[in-house]
Amino acid sequence: MSFLLDGEEVPFIPGQTIMEAARAAGKYIPHLCWDHEFAPHGSCKLCTVKVDGRFGAACTVAAHEGMNVDNRSAELDDKRRTLLQMLFVEGNHFCPSCEKSGDCKLQATAYELKMMSPHFDHFFPDRPVDASHPELLLDFNRCILCELCVRASRDTDGKNVFALSGRGIKTHLIVNSPSGRLADTDMAATDRAASVCPVGVILRKRRGFKVAIGNRTYDKAPISEQPQ
């Protein structure tokens, strides 16, 4: 069974989403909150494609025989770029001083979609960091609310360290401990949640800038040419 993705035939097994089938076929659909290890979340909308003329999130829409899916059209990439620009201005994303720079999915996706400017006015929010944990640092300034850490901690580590709190524009990442500090949880540096963050929120201490510029993940090749 197969469907068309940007005019190319992509095989699928019944039950697979468009994203899963595309990944298996080595095709890149831009995404941030999706990771093949975890249940889809469908919140970032970066993976929005057009299925037979209708918008849908590739990570949640099931593949069907003969469907016609637009992915990297100018129309969709324009909308994706706008989503990225909104993510950039909502947080404090200062790449030159971020340890994750060069390995960051938000940044690499913005390069892929040729985001030249933030376009909108910046919020410059005030978000304190949490350096309480001996091995891990939390810098909430960069959170894009993808919930990958929430899913990894709950579903893989069985610990439930993270959660989203608040609603709408006030939604923010919190740590599930009475004090709200990471040091007062059972989080360990070896947890899946410690390495799942696509941006620079959850960082291992004493590791920053160890890899030279030029050798980082997305220095070598654009995100669209790397394994998803």
């Binding site: 994303h93 030159p96 001083s97 400017s117 910046h122 410059f124 929010p125």
Partner: peptide, 18 residues
């Protein structure tokens, strides 16, 4: 033309904004 991080998004000086 906005050249460089500071012209594009405020850059390092803008880290005083909060």
């Amino acid at each position: 033309v906005a050249v460089g991080a500071c012209a594009v998004n405020g850059g390092l000086p803008a880290q005083r904004n909060h």
